[in-house]
Design a protein around this nucleic acid. Structure first.
Lengths: 225, 225
DNA sequence: AGAAAGATGTGACATATCTCACAAAATAAA
DNA sequence: TTTATTTTGTGAGATATGTCACATCTTTCT
């Protein structure tokens, strides 16, 4: 099998120096897999001994709540997925589903841990990522509950345009139901709010294609709540 | 200065083997400080180059949200505090305030990082802690939004009795306002719900002293929402 | 002790969202 | 192409909580 890790633009290469022998090791213990939009990549409750590196695509992270499934996060490549599973009981603690066609690399957990132990730079990178996630979760919690729906929806649109797609024009990778789920609102409320945004000239929409036309106002809505 | 680390029941000793020279190093670069209930231990936005190990006590972790301060977590000793600050820009990313009298150990960040690099067992312990926090944050988010107030309040009471104090009788370390803030509810709602719980024979209260008398029912309320 | 600040009870009312109910579109499957 | 299935668009009514307004109580500070 050819060692794809050598060409991989993964975080390992870009921000962390790996020794050749370490790349070699990865090469021998991974599996590159493609997923289509809508496919489940990680399923909560299932036993797993892999870490997953997302090479291409975008995924929603969701966790089963008391009464329904809850989207807690949207991530885009490149990033690692399922780390919290790694260090616990090897049971996936949440689910990850592709919202865009994706390419993913399954890495053997043992190899991953070995790498962590050998490469200090790498382990501190992972540590940092985990810290960021935790903070992000806290911030999101505070926002979602203190703002009302329009503010949260504005946040989502800004998130898409600034972090996820990095353009003012993009195609929503989530249904209105999913967006509602993500921001703790009903589908209908999201729908109505989107209509308002269009009428107020903040965005234009054709199907799921969105164009942000008044980002300033969108920011205001995001802030005041 | 006497090396208190040698007697410290801290996580370093209990779950991770440290070499004598490493304990020595800690001893030379730390400061033990006592805080009284209500004192601020970590203040969001302030520059800091310390990791904090909580030896005794209980703290609330709060973060400034769009419109007000939001409690995101309650922690008890022994644990580390302020890790997310550690690996970022050295600015505290949230605040920590004592809700009970506490004893805390300020550890020099450099020393802490050195330890992380040298002791694989220790760094994997920290990694694990971070993973747990992240998951906990996700779960909490899902719960808080999907359950209604009574369910969340029940959760808080169970959290106190099962994780934080580990008894069915305890004294609430938070005001009703704080509890409300924590579970995303108004102070008044919490007050009314507590009265209901008392009337339904689920708990008894004298001032802030709580005694859980029907834990089974409390669990039911926690679950159904 | 006395004053000031904060914490707790409780009522009445406003309101942002949820929920239910259907119809029209758009996608996916056959 | 036709048939299912999933999304989206809108209305009307129900409701869980928030908000405001006071009246105790407590605790803290001077």
């Amino acid at each position: 099998m050819r060692n794809e890790c050598i060409d991989c633009e993964c975080v390992l290469r870009s921000s962390v120096e790996l020794k050749d022998c370490q790349i070699e090791m990865l090469g021998g213990h991974h599996a590159l897999v493609k997923f289509r939009k809508g496919d489940s990549i990680i399923k909560q409750g299932v036993f797993s001994t892999n870490v997953i590196f997302l090479r291409k695509g975008m995924e929603k992270v969701h966790i089963s709540g008391p009464s329904r499934e809850q989207i807690v996060r949207l991530v885009k490549a490149p990033t690692y997925l399922g780390l919290p599973t790694t260090f616990g009981d090897k049971i996936n603690q949440y689910s990850v589903t592709a919202v865009l066609d994706s390419e993913v690399c399954f890495i053997d957990l043992g190899v991953f841990k070995k790498l962590l132990g050998e490469n200090r730079e790498f382990s501190s990178y992972i540590l940092m990522e985990l810290c960021k996630s935790e903070l992000e979760a806290y911030r999101r919690c505070a926002s979602r509950t203190q703002k009302q729906m329009r503010g949260n929806l504005a946040d989502v649109l800004l998130e898409f345009s600034e972090n996820l797609f990095e353009t003012d024009q993009f195609t929503l990778p989530l249904s209105q139901s999913d967006i509602g789920n993500w921001v703790d609102a009903g589908r209908e409320s999201i729908n109505r709010a989107l209509s308002e945004f269009i009428q107020d000239g903040i965005i234009e929409m054709t199907g799921r294609k969105v164009k942000i036309t008044d980002k300033k106002l969108l920011r205001t809505i995001s802030q005041n709540g």
